[in-house]
Amino acid sequence: MEDNIKILIEKALDVRKNSYCPYSNYAVGASILAEDGNVYVGANIENASIGGTICAERSAMTNACSSGARSIKIIAIVGGKVDQNINEMDWAFPCGICRQFLNEFASEETIVVVAKSSYEYRMFKFNELLPNAFGPNNLE
């Protein structure tokens, strides 16, 4: 699993370069290893209306869904100010909307990796970041 995590972090760092963040100047990249074995990436894309902004995590998951994937094994997230070097990066935890959005596709086994680099990261079970979540099972 550690090799997968390092690959996902590197892909998130790479896609972060495509972030469009002229308002916050905070670039985020995310990569998802889906249950289908494929990796899907996304960057944050801001909008002047603010409400039209999409975070990197949701961007990656919509990429996965558009390709037919519906279940997340691991998601890696990296972020920080555009001009920060890798040694100054923040821990870019998913926002509340992203946590709720990802809950639709996460399981008890889903791992969330919040990283500064491929050698400095934290791992969480998804339900640690969104305990007692409302999701599809509540509607059965």
Rank of each mutant, 00 (worst) to 15 (best):
C21M: 11
S67W: 07
G29S: 03
G52E: 05
L129R: 00
G79N: 03
I77Y: 06
S117V: 03
N103I: 00
N63T: 14
I111P: 01
I9L: 08
E108P: 05
S49M: 04
E35A: 14
N103S: 04
V78T: 05
E46D: 09
E10K: 15
K125R: 15
F126S: 02
P131C: 08
M61R: 09
S117K: 00
I72M: 02
M89E: 13
A106R: 11
V28I: 14
K17V: 05
S19D: 02
D36I: 07
E140V: 13
L8H: 01
Y121N: 05
D90I: 02
N85V: 08
E109Y: 09
I5T: 12
I111D: 05
N18R: 15
I32G: 07
Y20E: 07
E128L: 03
F134I: 15
S71F: 02
A60M: 02
V15E: 01
A12L: 02
K73F: 01
K125V: 00
S24P: 04
N25G: 09
P131I: 08
S49Q: 02
I7W: 03
P22S: 01
K11W: 09
E108R: 10
E140I: 15
F134W: 12
A92T: 01
G29K: 06
Y119W: 12
N38M: 08
C55Q: 15
S67H: 13
V78A: 00
C95L: 04
I54M: 13
K125F: 10
E140L: 14
K11C: 07
N138H: 13
G42F: 06
E2R: 10
M61K: 11
N63S: 11
F105H: 11
R70C: 10
R122P: 08
K116D: 04
A12G: 06
F93G: 01
N132M: 12
L129K: 02
I74V: 03
R99D: 07
F134V: 14
N103M: 03
G52I: 05
T53A: 09
T53Q: 07
F93R: 07
I50K: 14
N138F: 04
I5K: 05
E88N: 13
G52C: 06
G37H: 01
S19W: 09
G68D: 04
R99A: 03
F126L: 01
R99C: 12
Y119P: 01
Y40F: 14
I77V: 13
Y40K: 02
A34M: 03
S19L: 06
E128V: 00
A48S: 12
G29M: 03
F101G: 07
L102H: 06
G51Y: 13
A48H: 05
N4A: 12
P131G: 12
I77P: 08
E140D: 12
C98M: 00
A60E: 00
C98S: 13
P94V: 00
R122F: 10
N137L: 09
G68A: 00
A115G: 11
V82L: 13
I74A: 05
S19N: 01
W91L: 02
E35Q: 14
E104T: 14
V114A: 03
E35L: 09
T53N: 15
E57H: 04
N137R: 06
M61W: 05
G135C: 08
G52R: 08
M89C: 09
E46Q: 10
P136A: 10
